[in-house]
Nucleic acid binder design. Structure first.
Lengths: 234, 234
DNA sequence: GCGATTGTTTGCGCTGCATCAAACACGTTT
DNA sequence: AAACGTGTTTGATGCAGCGCAAACAATCGC
């Protein structure tokens, strides 16, 4: 195993306040791994043997229902931890993780998680802040699903993606990984048909530009209005 | 402030493995508080000055949308912590908590949370397991809202309540705090009208018995079938 | 280059559930 | 008892959005 440079992780909140030696020690126990697009990193219900840090790429976290339906729980961007089942007191992964693009991850054996967090306070605290904000996020999703119409939910989802992973372009904010209508449907609890219709409608209004597996938000503000206000049909 | 007996909390997972002196120390910093039915314990967006342990009663955790809609995030039963915003890296409460019945809580200043969890490992770990399972639960809710019909969602909600807080009676499992159709509607993202219709239908089928602010699950198994299987109309 | 595969668009009919509306049951106050 | 408030039932109506189907467009493999 080649030695990993600690600049890889030095800037991340989880590793704040650690010395170079400590970072090296953490990295010495990690193995770096390239993940090809559409490859599964870990599988729902599988033994949680490892936890991961996404160094580069985007990962889709998916939960499947017994009858085969899928729901996209969230997207992970680089710099975030994933597969931290052990931190939540679980021994199996609660969902599957699939690379949305070619990715690079660091992987550690799960049992090291508790050692790290005991040894490096920032690591534990950082993780729990992450978990806390994910809990928040999940609740927000529940609220949205309970109180909003499909159009507003899709708008919110798009805005969230644009904020998390958006890339400025000449046309607007581009979601910088391939995403299909089906994916958006699985994030918002609707069908790809409805998403397609909505995007078409928005495109004619100039709010977004979209094509095969790509979406650009042209008018974030107008989209936001749509996402928020109970729409007074005009 | 009268001295609290540590038998109050000795059995709880959060305080596992602590000596009598330690428990006394924890309790010395707590103040015990009676909360009348329908009283707010803490308010959404309010400064998270305290965290709480519910000693007796049932608490409704509610989130309100800007436009006044309410969603019931969960019910808390006795023995559970609530208001642990600080553990999640927040300084305001993300939701409101309202006593569903007369309650008794212990309250601590929020800043003690980190001290306790540093000092008593079981406390921190226990809390995070709680948070972990709540995250799980929230994700389950998202999945349900995304993939299930109203009837199944209501059935699931009822079963969850029956499991968490059910009380065996001659007729079946009674949900042992007052709960209205409106409440159930706010848990499942539907309207009280629809909930009422469903309960009526189930009552004629003998699955439940219900009246003003009370629901008894008579046939948990049949209700479960309904909640799970995509119903083949019969 | 050509077919095969995968993603997208769009039309149409149907239905689950929200919305509106009214009446009813129970408990509480006067 | 009568009057009131709060929770529940039930009917009637409308429509958002799902299911189905068919055609189209882009990309991949050979």
């Amino acid at each position: 195993m080649s030695q990993l440079d600690h600049s890889l992780i030095a800037g991340l909140p989880q590793f704040q306040g650690m010395t170079s030696e400590e970072l090296d020690h953490v990295l010495a126990n990690a193995r770096s791994q390239r993940i090809a697009k559409d490859t599964t990193i870990f599988e729902q219900e599988g033994e949680a043997n490892s936890f991961f840090l996404l160094l580069d790429g985007h990962v889709r976290v998916v939960k499947s229902t017994p009858d085969g339906q899928q729901v996209i729980v969230r997207y992970i961007s680089s710099g975030e931890l994933l597969g931290i089942a052990h931190a939540l007191g679980r021994t199996t992964y609660p969902a599957s993780a699939v690379a949305a693009v070619d990715c690079v991850v660091l992987a550690w054996p799960s049992r090291l998680w508790s050692r790290f967090s005991a040894q490096y306070p920032a690591f534990g605290v950082g993780t729990y802040k992450t978990v806390g904000s994910r809990l928040q996020e999940a609740h927000t999703r529940v609220i949205e699903m309970s109180t909003e119409q499909v159009e507003q939910r899709v708008a919110h989802a798009l805005l969230r993606l644009a904020n998390q992973t958006g890339k400025k372009t000449a046309e607007g904010v581009l979601i910088d990984f391939p995403i299909s209508r089906q994916d958006i449907a699985e994030m918002t609890g609707t069908t790809l048909h409805t998403v397609s219709r909505l995007l078409s409608a928005w495109e004619t209004k100039g709010l977004v530009r979209s094509g095969r597996q790509k979406v650009t938000v042209v008018e974030p503000h107008k989209l936001f209005m749509l996402a928020e206000g109970r729409p007074k049909k005009d």
